[in-house]
Amino acid sequence: MSDIKKFMFVNRKAPYGTIYALESLEVVLITAAFDQDVSLAFLDDGIYQLRKGQQTKGIETKNFSPTYRALDGYDIEKLYVEKESLEARGLSEDDLLVDVIVLPRAEMGELMDQQDVVLSF
C-alpha cells in the first residue's frame, strides 16, 4: 500500500459561530507536513469561510481567513467549492478570498468517492 493517501477535508460550517472551521484548518496545515494528497471541499455554509472582507475586531475574535490564502505556501492548492451551495448563497467566485475550483454537485460527489480519508468537523 502506498504511504500517500488522499485526504479530503469537508467544510460545511460557517466560521465564528462555532470553532469547527478554525480547528479544521489547523488539521489541514498539519496534514500538509505529512506529504499527503490534500484537498478541501466547501459545501453549504462552509463556503462562508472563504468570504472576502471578514472583519472580526468587533467580536474580539481572531480573523483566521487569511490562512486560506497561505495554504498555497503549504502546497495545498486543491480547494473545491460546490456550485449549487455557492449559488444558493448568492455568491460567486469573485466574492471569495482565494482561488477555488467550482464543481457541480455530481462532480463533487465523485471526488469524495475517490478519497481514502474524508474528514469533516
Binding site: R12, L43, D44, A106, G109, M112
Partner: peptide
C-alpha cells in the same frame, strides 16, 4: 438540519 439533504444532493450513491 440540512445534513441529510446535502448528502442526498452531493453523494453519487452507495
Amino acid at each position: 438540519n440540512g445534513a441529510f439533504d446535502s448528502c442526498l444532493r452531493v453523494a453519487t450513491g452507495g
